[in-house]
Nucleic acid binder design. Structure first.
Lengths: 341, 341
DNA sequence: ATGAAAGCGCTAACAT
DNA sequence: ATGTTAGCGCTTTCAT
């Protein structure tokens, strides 16, 4: 195998036309087993590898799907990516990953790969861009799928869990342990997830007839430092609370750090519950209670749907996929507090 | 902006030749500021986006670099990827990531993107494939860079830390705490890293005149379960040891789990030291002592070197980059044991 | 500084 | 079932 062997080289040596070689490679059904064998033999002898750019140009597709995530080192996203990757691979698609590092501009720029026809479709995981921008791309016939947010456009498949519902579950769990002053450390206020998680929090309080104190809400931007600082602000307010619902595990990490600095004991003095079932959460001391989402499955199901829709094998009917989440009760909230007063 | 605008559409509307539009986009120097402005205006009006496949085909390059890692959800690899991604991005290169999930075949298959000219070069992080195979690709003029292993070929840049050296440091640290029976849980025996880490272990023992017991060596395949099982095998042998050097943090996770099941207290009854400074390690209880490598920097430096070499801006002289690692002493080994005669 | 023309390597439409 | 022909959209000589 050497130098740039082209399809015509193979064709000549095999005594057939280039088109036949192409057929052998792409659509063997339309070719005699005998010719196929002959051609394959030459292909192997010559070590022929079709040029991807020429193929892409001619066929007007790249068999490549892009994936945009806010942070590749967060296990939530890497699990989703694994799900996408494996299914895509089984369907002969390549996957290009973009780690935006929480930068919305980078996210937007990545969508350019769609417009330059470098990729055939894109999956956005927990996107930062507004619905408006995303809808605009979909309107221009680009294929987009979303993990973790619902966007209403008939060409956009989405997969999500019910944030309101699991947040209510978390609060109910805490109430069941005797907590009545429950703080919430939420993510970036513009994120849809944040408002849904807050909504669930409020709904649950109402359901349990617990008065709502706005001072018990803080924002931690979905990262460790943010969680740490939000918790410190909570402490600084000198108001009483016995539990914290952290809208993701990363922020809960910050809560743990602050607690350790202030000598606050989890779960005896403070119950903590996170969201995501981050790889780290079960190794914490105490292990962190959290909400698990089927991350791998979410990636897998969505990419399958997207590919189907791109190839129009699929009606756009059930394009909103919902999956169940599960509250994992671990050491950080496994403690029933006494009634006080 | 709509439908497929081509370079000729822009050219016509701007009253110039397609070649001029191409020059504006790629090599503005050779075009009058006035023409350039005129063309740019039309480009924006029409929302023209050059077709990547056509560009790749004609220019014989894709401005894309592939990265292969064994496991994207391991923070060691995701940090390396971040380093690669950011530098590549700043040099106008795209990055395609492949998560092999420890599958050597998938690794090999990914290299096919090189032969089909889908990517211009590839970076292999802790590759599983043999030197022989990798060298063969390099011999065929493909651009390959390696993170975490040294391969001797003048066209292959490599970046690494000194595994022997830091392993000796780890053992010396443990010896300094009074340990003399030190077990090692190593990675897959065919990995170069494993043999280097073992070499360092043996060298350090010799240096400290500590007798070597082959029963104190076990293999844990670089993953949590492997570490768990290796440690159980160690226990089953009923030989005495007071410290374990785990060749990575993942396996140390397994050691922690086994210890907790067997009521073994770290660091009082057993000192543990890992390698990688995995994100999880500092959150363990007790925090895990480990060897930190400058992962982000390693990715960044290597991709820079690779790009330089691809564009022949760089002599192949100093193609072996060495970076320093650092032993982080944390709770899991921060305990001086009594001399017992 | 700009234009005209050729061609990168493949696949698809049409012809046989 | 296979061959012939044309062309995907761009960049790059070579002219001017």
């Amino acid at each position: 195998m050497d130098m740039k062997i082209k399809i015509v080289d193979v064709a000549t040596k095999a005594g057939v036309a280039p088109a036949t070689v192409s057929r052998v490679l792409n659509d063997s059904s339309k070719v005699t087993p005998k010719t196929k064998a002959k051609v394959m033999k030459i292909i192997n002898e010559l070590g022929y590898q079709p040029n991807a750019a020429a193929k892409n140009l001619r066929s007007q597709k790249t068999m490549t799907i892009g994936v945009v995530v806010p942070d590749i080192s967060n296990s939530y996203f890497s699990e989703v990516i694994k799900g996408i990757g494996n299914i895509a691979y089984s369907k002969k698609y390549k996957v290009v990953i973009c780690d935006t590092e929480n930068n919305a501009e980078k996210e937007l720029e990545f969508l350019n790969l769609l417009t330059t026809r470098t990729i055939d479709g894109v999956i956005m995981v927990a996107p930062m861009l507004s619905n408006e921008i995303i809808l605009n791309f979909a309107d221009h016939e680009y294929s987009i799928g979303i993990v973790g947010r619902q966007i209403d456009h008939e060409r956009i498949p989405c997969i999500l869990t019910d944030n309101v519902k699991f947040s209510m579950q978390v609060i109910s769990h805490l109430v069941g342990l005797g907590h009545r002053e429950i703080a919430i450390i939420n993510g970036s206020s513009h994120a849809v997830d944040s408002s849904n998680r807050l909504e669930g929090y409020l709904k649950a309080l109402k359901e349990h007839q617990i008065p709502f104190h706005p001072e018990l809400i803080e924002n931690g931007d979905f990262n460790e430092t943010g969680g740490y600082e939000a918790f410190k602000r909570l402490l600084a307010k000198k108001i009483r609370f016995s539990a914290v619902y952290s809208a993701n595990d990363e922020m809960a990490l910050g809560v743990y750090r602050a607690c350790s600095e202030h000598g606050i004991q989890i779960p005896m003095q403070l119950a903590v519950v996170g969201v995501d079932n981050n790889r780290i959460s079960k190794y914490l001391n105490p292990p962190l209670s959290t909400v698990n989402q089927p991350k791998y499955t979410m990636g897998a199901l969505l990419v399958e749907k997207l590919i189907d829709m791109m190839n129009e094998n699929e009606d756009a009917e059930n394009r909103i996929l919902k999956v169940e989440s599960e509250l994992l009760i671990r050491g950080s909230s496994d403690y029933k507090i006494k009634g006080r007063e």
